[in-house]
Design a protein around this nucleic acid. Structure first.
Lengths: 344, 344
DNA sequence: TTGTAGGCGTTATCAA
DNA sequence: TTGATAACGCCTACAA
C-alpha cells in the first residue's frame, strides 16, 4: 500500500452537501433537482445537475430509502436461473423494473421450498415487493409473506393474491388434437415438478383432450424438468408403444429428441415431440412444435402488476390470465405406419 | 418512473426505540443486545431480546447500512441473463453469496456499454462490491467504478484490478489441432462481440494454431453471439469452402448445426463444429465437441475473490487464471472427401 | 422558487 | 456496563 494512503481503500461517493456547496444552493435544492425538478427553475435544475454530473454524484439509495420508507428495490425469486424460461422471464422483469427506477434482487431457490422461504424472509427488509415465480412453497407460507410485502405470483393460483397465470391449457389441448389428426393413437405426457401449478394444468389438459379424442395417454414422471430427464425416459416411451410425446417444457422436449436420435429414431419421421415455453424451441433441430408462453413479456407484465400494487395497494389481489400460442414447427408429423397399426 | 406511494398497507415493523422503551433501557443497549452482546450483562441481553421477540422486532437493514456503510449486498452485472453461460455463472455466484450472508442484485446490460455503466453507477450505493462479467465497458470507466467499490472482473484483463480469466487459448489451439488431425484444411472462426476479451483470446488462438499447422482460416464476424447469428452465417461458411467451424460459444455452434441441417449438410459427417462453454454442449444433438469453461464454479470463484477483498482490501488486484477443458464429443469428424479434394 | 430544520432507524463515540 | 448524542445521507413540511 502507498504511504499515506487513506484509511478507506475506496473513494467515498460525493454527498448531497458537496454538490450543494459547489452549486451554491441548499441541500434541499439539490434534492429537488433530482426528486422534484418541477418545483425548481429550469436553469437551477440544469446547473445543479451539471455540478452533480461533474462530481459524479448519484443520490444514495440507502439514505433515500431510510428517509422515505421506499427502497426502490424489488426481488425476483425463481426455482432455477439457468432454466431458459425463467431466465427470459427475469430478463423482461429486470428491464421493466429498471425502466421504472427499481433495482432487482435475484434469488434462486434451487427448486426447494426451504430456500425459497429463506430468500423471501431475508430479502423482505430491503424490497418493496416480490415477484415469485412458480413457487414450490406452501400456500400458507406464501400468504405469510404476502401479508408483509407486495407480492405477485407467476404461475401459482392462490385466491386473493395478485397472480399472473400463463394459460397453457387450450394450447396443450390443441397440441393433442394436432397429434390425433396426424394419426397418433397413443401419446405420453412427461411431467414437470409435482409442486408446480403449471404441471397440474398441463397434465390435466392432456388428459382431458385425450379422453375426449379417445387417445391413450401414458404419464411419465420426471425428477426435475431437465434435458437429462427427457433423455432418460426415452426407453420408457418406446416401450410404452406411444408414437408421440408432449413434454412439460422445451428443455425436456430437447432431451427426448436427443435420446430418440441416439437410438436412431428420427423426429418427426418416426416419433413426434411437443414442447412448451418457446424460448429454446427454435434453437433446436428440428425446431420444436411447441407452446409459446411469451416469457419475456410475462416478466414485464408481472413487474407492471407489482408496480401498480405499489402505486395503489387496492389493486392487489387480481388475477391475470395470459394466453399461450400453440405453434407447429418441425418436430411433429404423421404417425409412423407400424406404430399406428400396433394401436388398431 | 417514481417509486410507489409512501402509504403502507402492510404491517409496519417496530423500531429500536419501542423496544428500548418497553425494556426500559436506552436504544444503544438494544442495539448492542443484537450487534455486540458481549458488551452487555447476560441478563440485560436476555431481557432485551425477550422484549424484542415479543414485539417482533428485527433490526432494520437499511438503517443499519446507512450507519455502518455495510449493506450486505453485492451485484452481478452481465451482458445477457438468458445466455446459458452467464446464467450458470450467476447461479454459482448467487449461491456462494447467499452462503456468505450476502444478497445479490442482478443487472442485465443487454450487451451495451451504456447500460452497463448505468447499472454500475446506480447500484454502487447499495452494494459492497461488484462482479462484472465480460464487460463491454471501456477500461477507463471500469477503473472509475473499481476505484469506488470492490470489483471483480470475469473475462476481462485489466492490470491492477482483481480478475478471473477463463483461459480458453490452449483449448482452442487443441481444437484446431484436433480438426487438422481429422484432415480439415480450411476452417472458420465465428467471432463473438468485438468488445469481448474472450473473443480476442479465442480468435488469436485459432489464428495462431492455424498458422502453425498451415490451415486456412476464415474469420466470420457476428453481430451478437446468438443461435440466429450462427444459423445466418452458414451460407457464408459453405461458400468459403471450409469443412469445419469453431464458434465463439455453444449457442452460435448450435445455430451452425441447425443451419447446416436445414441444407441437408450433416454434422459431423459433412461438416465439423466446435463450440465453447460447456453448458448446452450436451443438450444438443449431436452433443457438441466443445470447450468446457466450468461457468458454475467460475461464478463461485468470482464471489470468493470478492469476499476476500471485502475482508481484506489489500488482496485486491490479483489475477486468477482458470483452465478450460477441450472435450471431444460428436460434432466433429473426418473431413469430407469432396471438400478435402477441393482444397488440394 | 428556494432555504431551514427536523426526522428516518441504526451504530459509534464519548462519558458516566 | 450503560446512556446520551452525534453522525450516516437524504427527504420534506414549513417558512421565507
Amino acid at each position: 500500500m502507498e504511504p499515506g494512503s487513506p484509511k478507506r481503500p475506496f473513494e467515498t461517493a460525493p454527498t448531497i452537501k458537496q454538490v450543494a456547496d459547489v452549486a451554491r444552493v441548499s441541500r434541499a435544492t439539490v434534492s429537488r433537482a433530482f426528486g422534484a425538478p418541477h418545483l425548481l427553475r429550469r436553469d437551477t435544475v440544469e446547473s445543479v445537475r451539471a455540478v452533480a454530473e461533474r462530481l459524479g454524484y448519484v443520490p444514495n439509495h440507502i439514505a433515500r430509502a431510510l428517509s422515505t420508507g421506499r427502497t426502490g428495490n424489488i426481488a425476483l425469486v425463481v426455482p432455477d436461473i439457468t432454466n431458459a424460461f425463467f431466465a427470459a422471464l427475469m430478463r423482461g422483469a429486470q428491464a421493466k423494473a429498471r425502466d421504472a427506477g427499481y433495482a432487482t434482487f435475484v434469488g434462486d431457490s434451487d427448486e426447494t421450498p426451504e430456500l425459497e422461504d429463506m430468500l423471501l424472509t431475508k430479502l423482505a427488509a430491503q424490497v418493496e415487493g416480490f415477484v415469485l415465480v412458480s413457487p414450490r412453497l406452501s400456500q400458507e407460507r406464501i400468504k405469510h409473506h404476502a401479508a408483509r410485502r407486495a407480492l405477485v405470483l407467476v404461475n401459482s393460483d392462490i385466491a386473493d393474491l395478485s397472480r399472473l397465470l400463463i394459460d397453457t391449457k387450450p394450447s396443450y389441448e390443441r397440441a393433442v388434437e394436432h397429434l390425433a389428426s396426424l394419426g397418433h393413437g397413443a401419446v405420453a405426457y412427461l411431467a414437470g415438478p409435482d409442486l408446480s401449478w403449471s404441471n397440474g394444468q398441463r397434465a390435466a389438459a392432456v388428459s382431458d383432450a385425450a379422453r375426449r379424442l379417445s387417445l391413450r395417454v401414458v404419464d411419465v414422471p420426471t425428477s426435475r424438468p431437465s434435458f437429462e430427464a427427457g433423455r432418460a425416459c426415452v426407453a420408457c416411451l418406446l416401450e410404452a408403444g406411444v408414437t408421440a410425446a408432449l413434454a412439460f417444457d422445451d428443455v425436456v422436449a430437447q432431451g427426448i429428441v436427443a435420446g430418440l436420435a441416439e437410438r436412431g429414431v428420427m423426429v418427426p419421421r418416426d416419433f413426434s415431440v411437443v414442447g412448451c415455453d418457446g424460448v429454446i424451441a427454435t434453437t433446436n433441430f428440428p425446431p420444436l412444435t411447441s407452446i409459446d408462453v411469451g416469457c419475456l413479456s410475462a416478466g414485464q407484465r408481472a413487474v407492471d402488476l407489482l408496480m401498480n400494487i405499489l402505486k395503489d395497494p387496492t389493486t392487489a389481489g387480481q388475477r391475470i390470465d395470459l394466453p399461450a400460442d400453440f405453434i407447429i414447427r418441425a418436430s411433429t408429423g404423421p404417425a409412423q405406419k407400424l406404430a399406428a397399426e400396433q394401436q388398431s
